[in-house]
Design a binder for these strands. Structure first.
Lengths: 336, 336
DNA sequence: CTGAAAGCGCTTACAG
DNA sequence: CTGAAAGCGCTTACAG
């Protein structure tokens, strides 16, 4: 029984008589053998490549830069293990660009993939191929249930909506009407926003049922046509506070400053630089955040644990729902 | 110029002619050489041992279990690198026990230490010895400034007090008196509590100056003698909310439930199990947390980066100041 | 199907 | 002060 034979059974590479196999397995068990990963990766010298398929950030400050920062951080730490990254991005407005880039990923055939399944039809087609090729993949931000993913990392939008409900409740005097604003083009591909709204309404149903809530969808954020309309609504209905369901809360912030509506309480999502500005000036009271960098970092780490270390990984990982204010924002390194 | 010579200059082990040294250094620079840590630890086979010197947890659920969980987590990940842990704990009530255990640490002479400098006089004596022996050490929870530490990980108590101020402000109607309670034996060794109080008062001075605030120190938490006194104070002064400056907010929770004072808003610190219970029942409105597990994890990691990987590490690491409510507590894994 | 050899990038004695 | 050899725990051809 030589070292070569043992290696063959360890890695199920066949070419071993069943009898020898059993003997090896038995001894491995008895001595509680655990392979030394350092020695293994040192000797094997094989490069493993991971790919990401994520939305292009809408600006240099845009949200989707953040998960990618986490991805790069973990990749750089894994350099020693011969891990490299081939990133791909698609255009958030064009499902076809998703498919196009997905083709490129398939051609490359990496050892693992981190993706945001933004367009469900296109993403479904893609992961079917991945399953066939047995390439492990992780969903980030949103997920397709039971699609054979190695894992999902993202937030519970319904619950974060509930939290938004509670916060705005404490910020505004009892009995005064409040508002939910979606700054979004197509609500269908933005299931998170609908979930947050549902959570928000649910909280009030259970805790402050007499509260009047008005929802508004603003799809064209290029022009400022919506401002007049919103302004009238606010003064007519005596709105006391606004919840913006995504990172575009800075639009509401600009609106408030422009019109001097500083009595309005305002909460929203995500630590974009402009949002932080409004937070520090007291225009935004709370930002709800989800540690996007950490999501990217953990996604790559899951792949690493599975592909290199052969460890089991958790399938679902809801990220924490963080509350950020002027007082704690400077200590919220989303990243250590 | 042989591989042995190169190794000698790489590790400053002397016995190299200055001329050869310079030649090697030059080439290393030109080729941008970076050592392969995997190969290095595989070949060297030397065991490195880290020690912790932390307070004994006061109960199986006590606060000080948490940093230790993070310590163990990182240690287990570093097993492959031959890192082991020798933990030591001291009694929070007895400075002498700190000194006693510190002696043992010195005798063991580990490759790195994570410690809570609970008693400043005793801790100072200890770190003087560590400096002499050139053993790197990290402070956790609180720090001694400029003591030669490799780093500090903890929270900014003043700022977390400010945050507490803001939260209680929104929870209670304007103009109604509020209260700060310290459940602590000796305030001097508990500098964090004094800092939190200072931050709290500062917030009101700047944002709600007419607010009336009453501070109370309760040192004997074994008996319940304080309850009658507190009860009278609350009804006489018409107190609307309470801020407990540490993890013992559960004592205030019990008090509220026992006396049916459910109109009182209550905030405090740390995710002890009993505190979570009160949070979920709506007795505690907010808990402010500091990711103690992460503190332990990061402290060991700093040691690893410095001792094994020879990387530079940041000297100060304030941890984030997290706001936990009934709505987000289930997603606050202080640990991934 | 099995075994023996070379090599991954380093460290550690040891001979000169 | 310098160099050559053996070995860390694995993987990877390759000969039989």
């Amino acid at each position: 029984m030589s070292i070569g034979t043992v290696d063959r059974v360890l890695h199920n590479r066949g070419e071993v008589a069943e009898e020898t196999r059993q003997k090896v397995l038995k001894i491995i068990n008895e001595m509680d053998y655990h392979p030394n990963i350092l020695a293994s990766t040192l000797a094997s010298k094989k490069a493993v490549v991971f790919s990401t398929l994520l939305p292009q950030p809408l600006s240099p400050e845009g949200y989707w830069n953040k998960p990618f920062i986490g991805v790069e951080k973990r990749i750089s730490e894994l350099q020693q293990y011969g891990v490299t990254l081939k990133p791909f991005t698609f255009n958030q407005a064009h499902p076809s660009s998703f498919t196009e880039q997905a083709e490129k990923v398939l051609e490359l055939s990496p050892d693992g993939i981190v993706m945001a399944p933004f367009f469900s039809k296109e993403a479904n087609r893609f992961v079917t191929k991945l399953r066939e090729k047995k390439i492990p993949f992780i969903f980030i931000d949103s997920e397709i249930k039971n699609a054979g993913q190695l894992g999902y990392i993202g937030q519970d939008s319904f619950q974060s909506g509930q939290l938004a409900g509670k916060l705005l409740h404490f910020l505004t005097p009892l009995g005064q009407p409040i508002m939910v604003i979606h700054f979004a083009r197509e609500m269908d591909n933005q299931n998170h926003l609908a979930q947050r709204e549902r959570g928000f309404y649910t909280w009030y149903k259970n805790n402050d049922p007499s509260r009047q809530i008005i929802t508004m969808e603003i799809s064209d954020t290029e022009s400022t046509d919506w401002e007049q309309n919103l302004k009238e609504k606010i003064s007519r209905q005596q709105i006391a506070g606004i919840f913006v369901t995504n990172s575009k809360v800075y639009l509401a912030g600009r609106f408030i400053e422009k019109n001097g509506l500083h009595h309005l309480r305002l909460i929203g999502h995500d630590l974009l630089n402009e949002n932080i500005g409004f937070l520090k000036r007291g225009v935004v009271d709370f930002l709800i955040c989800q540690r996007p960098e950490e999501q990217g970092y953990n996604a790559i780490n899951k792949l690493f644990q599975h592909v290199l270390m052969k460890n089991e990984v958790q399938n679902e990982n809801y990220t924490s729902i963080d509350i950020i204010t002027k007082e704690n924002v400077d200590y919220y390194k989303e990243f250590k």
